[in-house]
Each structure stands twice: as C-alpha cells, then as structure tokens.
C-alpha cells in the first residue's frame, strides 16, 4: 500500500485535538436525531447518562436471566427419560449460557465489566426475570418452559432486535434465531406426552396450570404501573408496552393450547370479536412484586447456586491468568507460599 495520507485536519474533527469540543446541547441534539430517525446508537457515540444506565440495567438483567435460567432446566438433564431428550435439554441449556455471554458482551460495550455484572447479580443489586424463581417440579415442566416461557421470551425479544442500541439489537438477532428450537422442542415434548397415558396428560395440564400466570408476569407490570416504559419507548429501547406484548402472547398461545389439548387456567379468557383479540384475567401482581423483592419460591437457592459456581470457579480464572502471564508455578516449584506478590 503506497497511499500517502494528506494532512486535512478539518475533515476529521475526532483526530484533531485543536477542534472545538461540541457542547452538551449539540451532542444531545445529535443523539436525539439518531433516535428520531429510528437509527441505532453505537458504543462510541455520545449518549445521555440516563440512557446508558437504563441499558446497563436492562441488558444486564437480560444476561442474568439467561444465566440463572440454566438452573431450572439444568436440574432435569440427569433425569431426562431418554438419550434423545437428554441431548436436547443439554443443547438448550448450553444455548442459554451462550445467550448470557452475547448479552454480557453487549453490556460491556456500555462501560461495565463482566466481573462487576456478576457481582451485582450475586449481591442482589441487579435482578433477573422473576420466572426463574419458580421450581421445576416435574419433567413436563421442561416442555412447558420451552412452549410458554420461551414463547413469552420470543414475543419480548423479537421487537428488541430493532432496539436503538446497536450491540443489544445484534445480540437479540442471534438469540432469536436460536430460540425457535427452544420453543419447538418444548411444544413437541408436550405433544408427545399428550399422546401418552392419562397420567402423562395430567402431568402436562398440571404443569401448564403452574406456569401460565408466571409466564404472563414475564412481560412486567401493567402499563399504568410501569413508570420507566414511556422513557424507554421515547429512546427506542423498547418498542412496545408490556400490555401490548402480553396481549400478543395470549393471542398467539390460545390456538396452540387448543391444538395441544390443554386448558389455560383463566376463567376470564375469551375471544373478543369486537377487539379482534382475547380478553383475559390479570395475574396476581402482588405475587410478582413479592418474587421481584426476593420472596419467590427459589430466589435464595438460585442466587446461592450462582455464587457457589462463581466462588468455586475462582481458582480456574486465577490459574488461567497465571498461565497466560507466565507466572504459574509448577507443582515441583518450591515457591508455594503464595503471598499474592508477582515474580519480577
């Protein structure tokens, strides 16, 4: 390459330290213009602190949900009834780990570190989806989680592919592509059980009864009790309200339930021809708030499990780092009194 760069400082203000810095108002105006034309904000763009904070909270919560979400299903891998089902469940839990990693990477572009994020999860300063605080009591729950929980997640995530923060949207695109397998394996599992014995059909119904309301809660509180929604929508972080997405989920799920042959446990669930949508009952919002505040059936054990995995993995992280830095000591080495100092 023999291209000679010509000096042209005015053409590229970023490269010229003498250029006038833009005022806060100009930066804000440029940010708003990007949002207004439904374009994407990228990590090196200026953004308001509140936008950054909102995204860190939302993307981190999303990442934590994927990571904690491995636990309710992970506990059934060893008890799956066939090699086929075991391999499928393993692949699904593995995907969830991957989805967590995509999302943590997106959060890191906002200036938080992986370690900080993990510590905020373990210390309870950041949340994860309330749904993962419910126990998985029967193997049918593996199907119900795929069908309802992942179905609700897909409803929520498809619009997020067009969220205003570039790295978050790109992570969502990868995740949505992989999520389809999750939902279909769940539905297929339930359909298989529904073709089985009366006892198996009862297991499916009992599982759906337990997961229906918590699945509806996954979309968050009703719009009139969701103070952050308006700002998130103005910023293009969210593109639909909680209630809109909940309605979409119910409308999609009702015919799937009918095809499966299960009843959704809501006496108020009925088609409203005038609205062209289903009317349905409200979940117990007091229960949602109790679970969010830490008083769900499994909150304590989920976080304790994650903390244990993090603590017990410390030596692996340290050993890998020591190896990479060339400071690892062999077992024959006499220098075993590790006082934390590094060899010069």
């Amino acid at each position: 390459m023999s291209v000679v760069a010509e000096p042209e400082p005015e053409a590229d203000p970023e490269a010229d330290p003498k250029a006038e810095p833009e005022s806060e108002a100009q930066l804000e105006a440029r940010f708003q213009a990007v949002i207004a034309r439904k374009d994407r904000i990228e990590p090196r763009d200026w953004m308001p602190d509140a936008y950054r904070r909102t995204l860190v909270r939302q993307v981190a919560q999303h990442a934590h949900s994927e990571i904690i979400g491995m636990q309710p299903e992970g506990s059934w891998i060893s008890r799956a009834p066939s090699l086929r089902r075991k391999a499928i469940l393993l692949a699904k839990v593995q995907d969830e780990a991957g989805h967590g990693l995509y999302l943590y990477s997106a959060a890191e572009t906002l200036g938080v570190s992986r370690q900080e994020l993990t510590e905020m999860l373990i210390s309870g300063r950041q949340k994860y989806s309330s749904i993962f605080n419910y126990p998985t009591l029967s193997y049918a729950d593996m199907g119900t989680i795929g069908w309802l929980v992942d179905g609700a997640a897909i409803c929520n995530q498809v619009p997020l592919c067009r969220t205003s923060f570039g790295p978050y949207g790109r992570a969502m695109i990868r995740i949505c592509k992989e999520e389809s397998f999750h939902q279909r394996q769940g539905y297929e599992l339930l359909a298989t059980m529904m073709r089985g014995t009366d006892e198996q059909r009862a297991m499916v119904q009992e599982s759906v009864d337990r997961f229906w309301w918590p699945s509806l809660m996954m979309f968050g509180p009703p719009d009139d009790a969701s103070p952050n929604t308006a700002q998130s929508m103005a910023w293009g972080v969210k593109t639909h309200t909680n209630d809109e997405l909940r309605q979409r989920f119910v409308d999609m799920t009702v015919p799937q339930a009918a095809a499966l042959g299960v009843t959704l446990p809501d006496p108020d669930l009925v088609w409203n021809a005038e609205r062209g949508a289903h009317d349905f009952g409200q979940p117990d919002w007091d229960e949602l708030w109790a679970v969010v505040k830490g008083n769900g059936p499994c909150n304590t054990q989920r976080v304790a499990h994650r903390k244990r995995a993090w603590d017990e993995g410390a030596w692996v992280r340290e050993a890998a780092l020591a190896f990479a830095n060339g400071t690892g000591t062999g077992t024959d080495d006499n220098d075993n009194d590790n006082d934390g100092t590094e060899p010069a």
């Binding site: 391999a87 692949a91 397998f181 279909r184 394996q185 999609m252 015919p255 799937q256 095809a259």
Partner: peptide, 16 residues
C-alpha cells in the same frame, strides 16, 4: 436437534 426443523409441529399450530 439444535435446529428448529428437527421438531415435528403439526401444520395447523400457528405462530411456531
């Protein structure tokens, strides 16, 4: 089995 097409879902089940 990592691909959605691995699973047979009847054609009359919508949105899946």
């Amino acid at each position: 089995y990592r691909h959605p097409t691995f699973y047979d879902i009847p054609a009359d089940v919508p949105h899946m």
